[in-house]
Structure formats: C-alpha cells, structure tokens
Measured scan of single mutants.
Amino acid sequence: RVIAMPSVRKYAREKGVDIRLVQGTGKNGRVLKEDIDAWLA
C-alpha cells in the first residue's frame, strides 16, 4: 500500500498517474505532490 495524503491521491488521479509507480521521497517513503510533478516531468 502506498503512503500518501488523500489530496495527493486526488492530484495523481486528476493527472492520470498510477500512484503505485511513483517513488515517494517523503518520510517513510510517503508520496508527495512534488513526486507526482517530478514523475510527470
């Protein structure tokens, strides 16, 4: 299970990103909004 705040999950869904593919850089591997942006870049 991916650790991410609900707002980040929603952001990823809106961008069409599968959050399971994104490498989290936050505490304990948490996926941050910046990680979604970096994955899209």
Rank of each mutant, 00 (worst) to 15 (best):
R1G: 14
R1Y: 03
R1W: 03
R1V: 13
R1A: 11
R1E: 15
R1D: 12
R1F: 04
V2M: 06
V2S: 09
V2T: 11
V2G: 07
V2Q: 09
V2I: 15
V2W: 02
V2K: 08
V2F: 04
I3A: 08
I3E: 10
I3T: 08
I3H: 07
I3Q: 07
I3K: 13
I3V: 10
A4D: 05
A4N: 05
M5N: 13
M5F: 14
M5T: 15
M5R: 13
M5Y: 14
M5D: 11
P6Y: 05
P6E: 10
P6Q: 08
P6I: 12
P6D: 13
P6N: 13
P6H: 10
P6S: 12
P6A: 10
P6W: 05
S7R: 11
S7W: 09
S7D: 15
S7G: 13
S7E: 14
S7A: 09
V8I: 09
V8G: 02
V8D: 04
V8S: 04
V8K: 01
V8M: 04
V8T: 07
R9H: 12
R9W: 13
R9Q: 10
R9E: 11
R9K: 15
K10G: 06
K10T: 07
K10R: 15
K10W: 10
K10M: 09
K10V: 08
K10I: 08
Y11C: 05
Y11A: 07
Y11R: 06
Y11P: 03
Y11M: 04
Y11S: 05
A12W: 02
A12Q: 01
R13S: 12
R13W: 15
R13K: 11
R13H: 12
R13N: 09
R13I: 13
E14F: 12
E14A: 15
E14V: 10
E14S: 11
K15V: 11
K15L: 15
K15W: 10
K15Y: 07
K15R: 12
G16E: 07
G16C: 08
G16Q: 11
G16I: 03
G16H: 10
V17K: 00
V17R: 00
V17E: 00
V17M: 04
V17W: 01
D18S: 06
D18L: 06
D18F: 04
D18V: 05
D18P: 11
D18I: 06
D18Y: 04
D18N: 11
D18R: 04
D18K: 05
I19P: 03
I19D: 01
I19G: 01
I19W: 06
I19R: 01
I19H: 03
I19T: 03
R20E: 10
R20P: 02
R20K: 14
R20T: 14
R20S: 14
R20A: 13
R20N: 13
R20V: 08
L21N: 09
L21Y: 14
L21V: 15
L21P: 02
L21F: 14
L21I: 13
V22S: 01
V22F: 03
V22E: 00
V22N: 00
V22D: 00
Q23Y: 12
Q23L: 15
G24T: 03
G24E: 02
G24N: 03
G24W: 02
G24S: 05
G24Q: 03
T25I: 02
T25K: 06
T25H: 07
T25Q: 05
T25A: 04
T25V: 03
T25C: 04
G26E: 02
G26N: 03
G26W: 01
G26I: 02
K27L: 14
K27D: 10
K27W: 09
K27E: 11
K27N: 13
N28Y: 12
N28I: 05
N28S: 09
G29S: 07
G29Q: 07
G29L: 06
G29D: 06
R30W: 11
R30P: 02
R30T: 12
R30D: 07
R30M: 15
R30G: 08
V31I: 14
V31K: 04
V31Y: 02
V31H: 02
V31A: 03
L32V: 10
L32F: 08
L32E: 12
L32K: 08
L32C: 07
L32D: 05
L32R: 13
K33S: 07
K33M: 13
K33Y: 08
K33G: 04
K33R: 11
K33E: 07
K33Q: 09
E34Q: 15
E34R: 11
E34V: 09
E34M: 11
D35R: 00
D35M: 01
D35P: 00
D35S: 02
D35H: 02
D35A: 01
I36N: 00
I36D: 00
I36H: 00
I36A: 00
I36S: 00
I36M: 01
I36K: 00
D37A: 04
D37N: 08
D37I: 06
D37W: 04
D37H: 04
A38L: 14
A38E: 14
W39H: 10
W39A: 07
W39Y: 15
W39E: 04
W39I: 08
W39F: 14
W39P: 01
W39V: 08
L40F: 08
L40W: 07
L40S: 06
L40A: 07
A41M: 14
A41F: 15
A41N: 14
A41S: 15
